[in-house]
Amino acid sequence: MALIRITKQFTFETGHALFGYDGKCRNVHGHSYKLGVTVIGEPIKDEDNVKLGMVIDFGDLKKIVKQEIVDKFDHATVFNKNTPHVELAEELQTRGHSVILVDYQPTSENMIQDFAEKIQKRLPEHIKLFGLKLQETESSYAEWFAADNS
């Protein structure tokens, strides 16, 4: 049995603001996020399977991550719905802007946990999420590993 990890990278543009924060990130701003998604599993050994030798088809992984994360977060603004930012969110929505209201402070650390939950729910049983890397800037990123969260 050989366990193999494969990774697919994604990019998306998302705005956010950190309510109550004591620095510049309290202001609405955006990032060009890079998300690395690593899964682990055994390559398919069934010679009659068109995906012989694959842990998961990169296209199948792409579909999951695009539907759960990229298509929703790309060019959207994320606000904590439990703060007065909800008023700003409602105003932006009335003007046709894409807004996501979450029940957490939209930091990279909290977003990556949210992403891990969403992706794990969609993976086939024989594939496990190994880790995520969410890069907010060229020099700043958050990482999530299944081994740290079991």
Rank of each mutant, 00 (worst) to 15 (best):
H85I: 02
E90I: 07
D103F: 11
L35S: 10
K8M: 05
Q113K: 15
F58G: 04
K24Y: 02
D57Q: 04
Q105I: 13
K81P: 05
T7R: 10
K51H: 13
V99I: 13
G30A: 06
T94A: 06
D60Y: 01
D48K: 15
N80C: 09
I44M: 10
P106K: 12
F58Y: 15
I56S: 03
L61W: 01
T107S: 12
D57G: 06
G15S: 11
I119D: 04
Q113N: 15
M54S: 09
Q113T: 05
G20A: 01
K121I: 08
D103R: 11
D114A: 11
L18N: 00
F10Q: 10
R26N: 00
E42M: 09
N27P: 02
T38C: 13
Q93H: 07
V102P: 09
N110I: 02
I100D: 03
D114H: 13
K63P: 06
V28Q: 00
E91T: 13
T107W: 02
I44V: 14
G53E: 08
E47L: 14
T38S: 15
N110W: 06
N49T: 11
G41C: 09
K66F: 13
D48C: 09
P43E: 12
E91A: 12
E13H: 11
G53R: 03
G53K: 03
R122M: 15
G41A: 10
V55S: 05
H31V: 05
S108F: 02
K51L: 15
T11D: 12
M111E: 04
G15W: 01
K8D: 11
V37H: 04
V50N: 13
C25K: 01
L101V: 03
H75Q: 07
V78Q: 01
E117H: 06
V102G: 10
F12D: 05
I56D: 08
E42H: 08
E13L: 09
P43A: 12
L123I: 11
L35H: 03
K51R: 14
K121C: 11
Q105F: 04
D48A: 13
D46N: 15
D74Q: 07
N27V: 00
H85C: 10
F79C: 00
D60A: 10
Q120L: 00
F58A: 12
M54F: 15
H29W: 05
H29S: 12
T77D: 02
D60Q: 06
S98V: 10
H75A: 11
I119H: 00
K121T: 12
T11E: 14
Q113P: 00
L61R: 02
D48P: 07
I40F: 10
K66R: 14
G36Y: 12
E87L: 14
E90K: 15
G36H: 13
Q67I: 05
L35I: 05
P84F: 06
K45W: 02
G15T: 01
D60L: 01
D57P: 09
V99T: 05
E42V: 06
Q105H: 09
I69L: 07
K62G: 02
T38H: 10
Q120F: 00
L123V: 11
E13V: 08
T11K: 13
Q105Y: 07
H29V: 08
S98P: 04
